[in-house]
């Protein structure tokens, strides 16, 4: 097998708070291969978002090692190795949708012609063609989140990190976006890290599901999905799907230990 895109070994992160140390991550080890769609699932406080933020160099681990593309997350960030999608779309209100997607391109110094071409392309990719001149407030929440995904896709990062991007959206919109995200992943071949707390979402999307548990945040199970890459929405009613979902649920329950 080739070198993993992201590789964590005994990764720990302890926040010092007024109430004493909080172990957000403890001895987390994980390899993510190129082209994987990896979901991180667990209850709040299990460190899944923290793990993603460590990959993105937005948090500093206090122990263990992690590499992204074979280098430290810091170096990876400096080479703009990943696109990050936040829980809130976080579009700048004074920029149009096109302007928001152009933001990373401007910062990274792409030529004007290249910027225009890329904006058109990614808008088509997320099904927002024709909305380039609109301002964020003129779009629905689901459309805003799609625009923020387009923003993360606009530049050539091989890795896409997504922190509960559809958490605030309703079920129907979420289903639709999940379907689109899979199509997008198939088309672009990116490696995706995806934080969620929805079991169906994790099972539907992922090639690999990382089940985490809180206090201290650690990995309790890593499930390689037996589902095929091609996944229509009704795959969620197949026995294979339900079996994986069951295993995720078991993992989540085991992680809780005596808490429940």
């Amino acid at each position: 097998m080739t070198n993993p895109v992201i590789s964590a070994e005994n990764l720990s992160l302890t926040f010092q708070t007024n109430d004493g140390p909080v172990h957000a991550l403890k001895d987390v080890s994980l390899d993510i291969q190129k082209g994987d769609f990896v979901s991180f699932i667990g209850p709040s406080g299990c460190g899944k978002t923290t793990f993603l933020r460590v990959m993105a160099d937005l948090e500093e681990p206090t122990g263990g090692t992690i590499t992204v593309n074979g280098v430290s997350p810091h170096e990876a960030r400096l080479t703009r190795a990943y696109g990050y999608v936040f829980q809130a779309a976080g579009l700048y209100p004074w920029r149009t949708i096109g302007g928001n997607i152009r933001l990373p391109l401007e910062i990274m110094g792409y030529s004007k012609a290249d910027q225009a071409e890329r904006v058109t392309r990614v808008l088509e990719l997320v099904d927002l063609a024709g909305f380039e001149k609109k301002f964020p407030w003129q779009l629905s929440g689901g459309m805003q989140q799609r625009a923020s995904i387009a923003r993360a896709l606009a530049f050539d990062a091989e890795i896409l990190l997504m922190d509960e991007p559809f958490g605030a959206l309703d079920e129907i919109v979420r289903d639709h976006l999940n379907e689109q995200l899979l199509a997008l992943w198939d088309k672009t071949g990116k490696t995706i890290g995806f934080v969620t707390h929805s079991i169906p979402e994790a099972v539907y999307l992922s090639t690999k599901i990382v089940v985490m548990s809180p206090r201290p945040g650690r990995v309790t199970d890593v499930i390689e999905s037996p589902l095929p890459r091609e996944r229509p929405l009704d795959i969620r009613d197949t026995p294979e799907f339900l079996e994986v979902a069951h295993r995720v649920r078991e993992g989540l329950r085991a992680g809780h230990g005596d808490d429940l």
């Binding site: 937005l58 703009r80 990050y84 936040f86 829980q87 809130a88 976080g90 700048y92 401007e106 910062i107």
Partner: peptide, 29 residues
Amino acid sequence: PTSSELDLLKTYNTGPVQSFFKLRLPASV
């Protein structure tokens, strides 16, 4: 600007001058 708006620029490895003109200044208008 919110911390996630600032984090976003950090993921692009944005320098302080560009952060000012692309985020802080327009946000303060």
